[in-house]
Design a protein around this nucleic acid. Sequence first.
RNA 1: GCCGGGGUGGUGAAAUCGGUAUACACAGGGGACUUAAAAUCCCCCGGGAGCAUUCCCAUGCGGGUUCGAGUCCCGCCCCCGGCACCA
Length: 833
Amino acid sequence: MSTRSDRTYDPIAIEREWQARWDREGTNSFTLDELRTAERPFYNLMMFPYPSAEGLHVGNIYAFTGADVHGRFRRMQGRDVFQPIGFDAFGIHSENFALKAEVHPMDLIPANVANFTRQLRRMGGMFDWGHTVDTTAPEYYKWTQWLFLQFFRHGLAEQKEAPVNWCPSDMTVLANEQVVVGACERCGTPVEQRFIRQWFLRITEYADRLLDNLPGIDWSDTTRKAQRAWIRRSRGAEIRFPTTGAAGERANGDHPAAIPVFTTRPDTIFGATYMVLAPEHPMVDAVTANAAREEVDAYRARTRAMDLVARQKIEKHKTGVFTGGYCVNPATGAPIPVWIADYVLMAYGTGAVMAVPGHDERDFDFATAYGLPIVRVVADEGEDADTPLAIAYEYPQGTLVNSGRYDGLSPEEAQRAIVEDLAAEGMAENRVSHRLHDWCISRQRYWGPPIPIIHCEGCGPVAVPEEDLPVVLPRVEDFRPDESGVSPLARVRDWYEVACPSCGRGATRETDVSDTFLDSAWYFLRYPSTDFPDRPFDDEVTRRWLPVDTYIGGNEHAVLHLLYARFVAMALHDMGRLDFEEPFTRFRAHGLIIREGAKMSKSKGNVIIPDPIIERYGADTFRLYLMFLGPFMAGGDYRDRGISGPHGFLHRLWESVVPRDGELAGGPPDPELEPRLHRTIKRVTEQVRALRYNTGIAAMMEYLNAVRAGGRTPVRAEVEPLVRLVAPFAPHIAEELWRRLGNGGSIFDGANWPEFDPEKAAERQVRVAVQVNGKVRGTVSAPRGADREAVVALARAEANVARHLEGTEIRKIIHVPDRLLNLVVAGKAARIR
RNA sequence: GCCGGGGUGGUGAAAUCGGUAUACACAGGGGACUUAAAAUCCCCCGGGAGCAUUCCCAUGCGGGUUCGAGUCCCGCCCCCGGCACCA
C-alpha cells in the first residue's frame, strides 16, 4: 500500500537505501572466482586520489563521476566491469601536511582514507570495495620494493652521484618533472643544485620505444603530444674536438685528448669558431690554463650557487669565461678557443657544444657579446659566402659556403657527408639524443617506502632478499627533514644497522625512501590481484584483465605518472613478467572545473564543498549537473544556480514514472513520440560512448520535455527506456524507478541498455529547408526520401519561396535529400526588399 | 619563442564528412493553477527595421574558395594550458 510520501522523490533516502543494498548484495564487487572467470572483462580505471585532509574536492568528484558513468554504461552493455579505487597516500604532500598539523602521518592517513571512503560511497561510484589499495600499507609497498629490486637485478636501477634539484624548503631532491621554471612545484621555492648520490631508474633506455609506441595507442592527442615533447628525440652527431697543448702551461699535464660535442647541425661545423663547455663539465679543469684559473673558478662557483634558478630565465643575457684552452676544429684543422658558459647545460647531450654563431641564435648572442668570430657557412637564395649575418640563419635550407670541399651541397647532403668523413677518421658518429633524463627516485624524506638496499663496505649495494620484504618504514616521532641532505631515517640507528645479506658483516640500510611516482607507476597491476598476499600480481588474473581498457584522469599527469607507468610496464614485459608492454589501451584526459569563470583556489575562497550540495540535492543531481556543465574532456564552468536544471529534470522523471495520483498507464507509445524515443536512444548511446555527456543529457531532457509537453501523461513504454538511459548518470534514482517498474534486482545486472531500432526511429515526414541563392526562404514538409523533383514542386508552392522565384530563371538546383534544397537563380531576385 | 586547446546570446554551452546558427540548461519577463508558497505547465527571450507576411545584420578581426562557410584556405588579434638557452 503506497502512501503519499512514498510517492515523493526523496533522493537522500533512496540513495542511502541503494548504497546499502549494493554493499549487501555485492553488486559492484568481484569475488576471486568471478575475477578468474569473467567472460567479458572490462577494466575501467581512474587515477586514484591522494587522500588529503580536506576531503574530496570537486575536481576529484568530476573525474570519478565521468569515469563511473563510462563504467556503468559499459556494464549496461553487458561487460563485466571491474572498477577499483585506492589511495595514493605516500609522499611529500602528506608529509608536509602532517608536519604542519603536527600529526604523525601514520595517524593522519587512515583518518583521511576513512573520510574519502565515506565520500566516495556517498557519490554513488560503482567501486569494488573488496579490491582497494593503499600505497602506504606494508602489504602494498612490499611489492613496490619488490618492483625496485627487479629493476636493480636487471641493471635498470643504478646509483650515481649527479647534479640534482634540491628544494631548500622541502629539504629534498626533486625530479626534473617536479621543477617548474626553476622552482619547486610543491612550494614554489627556488631550486638549488646539489651533488648527491641518488638512485636512478634508467628510463632513457626506453626513450625510443616510449616514443615509437605512441602512435599505436588510443590516447587523447594532447597527452601523446605532451609525452612526445617531453621525451624529445634529436638526431645528430657526436663529434670529438681534440684539445691542443698550445695554451701554455697547465696544472696537470694529462689533459684529455678530445672533447665530445653533440650537434644536430654537423653541416655547420666549418662555422664552429669556438667551443663552450657547461661550467660543471668534468673536463673544465683539464683544459683551463693557469692564467685563467682564478676567473674560471669564480665563474663556476657563481653558476653553481644560482644554478637552475637564474639559469632558466630566458631573457638573461649570456655570460661566460675563456678558459685559456684550445681545441682543434676537426673539419678546418684550426684551433678554436674553449669557453665555459652557463647557457650550456650539463644535463643535455655531452655538456659541451661546438658554437656556430652564424647559424645558432644563442651562439650568435654570445659571440656578439664577447667579440668572437662569426662565419657564414650556409647561404640562402640570393646570398653568398660574403653576405653579412645580422642575425643567425638557422634554417637548414640553402647551400654550403666557406666549407671547403663541401661548398655547394645542401645542408642535408652536407650533414651526411661530413659525419661520414669524420667517422672514417674516428672523429664522429651519428647519434640520437633525448631530452628525457633518467628517473631519480631517491627522496631524502620519511614518508615513503624505504629503498630496499643494504650498503656493505665489502659487497657494495646489496638487494634486500625478497623473503625479507617489506622493509617496514619504522614509526619515527621526529620525522622532520634537515639541512643535512639525508633522510630522517638516517637518525634511526637501530633500524639502519643490519647485517649484510651477502657476507654477514655489519652494514647499513639505504635511508632514502622512493618517489611517490613509483608507488603509482604499478598500482593498476595490483588491484585485480589484491587477493594474493604472496605475489605482486597473479599471472592468470592479469592476463584476463590487463591491459586496462579505459583509463581516465587529469592531463596534469601526462608526462609524469603516465610516462613512468608505461616505462614500468615495458620493463616488466621485457623481464617476462607481463605479456603486454602498453598498460593503458585507451586513455582520456578530462577537463577542469572552474567556478563562475574563475579558477577555484583556497586563497580565493571559491572552492566548492561537495558535501552540503549532496545533502541538499542528492548525489544523483550533483553527478548529473557536473556531467552537464560542458564536454567532459574539456571541463566546464560551475554556476551555483545551474544545478536546478538537472534537479528539476530528475524530479520530472520521477513524477513521470511515479505519478502523484494513479498508476503509470500501459499501452503502446504515442506514434508521434516513438521516432523521437529511438532517435534519443541513438544519440545518447553515441554521445555517452564518446564521453560527450553534456549533449547526451541534453538529448534526454529534450525527450522528456516532448513526452510531457502540454501536461500530457506519459505511458510506461515512453519513459521506461529513459530510466535505463539515465542510469549511468543517476544510478540511485534509476535503481529505484526500475524497481517501481516491477523489476527485481539491480538495473546494472544484465545488459539493460536500451536497444535502438532504426525502423522505429525513421520519420515519415521531414522538414526540408529551401534556399534561394543560398539564403533560407522557407521550409517544406516532405515525405522522407522524396526525390528532387518532388521537393522542388513543394518548394515552388511555398509562398515566400515563390515570391523569391518570381521573374527569375533557375540555373542550378542543389538537393541534399531530407535536409535542404538550394535553388540558384538569375534575374531580379536580388532586388526583393 | 615553440607546441597544444579555444574565442558563438545576459550566462554555461549546441551545431565541425560545409547544408535551416544559437539545441539543452541557467538567469530574466509574462501567464495558468494555488489561500499562499513550492512543484508543475504554457508563452517570450541575439541585434536592427516593420502593424505584419517579412527583410537586413550577427559565430574574435581582415581577405579568399563555394550554390552555400561557425565549419575549409591565407593573413592577423586575444584568452587558457604545457614546454622553454635541449646545441
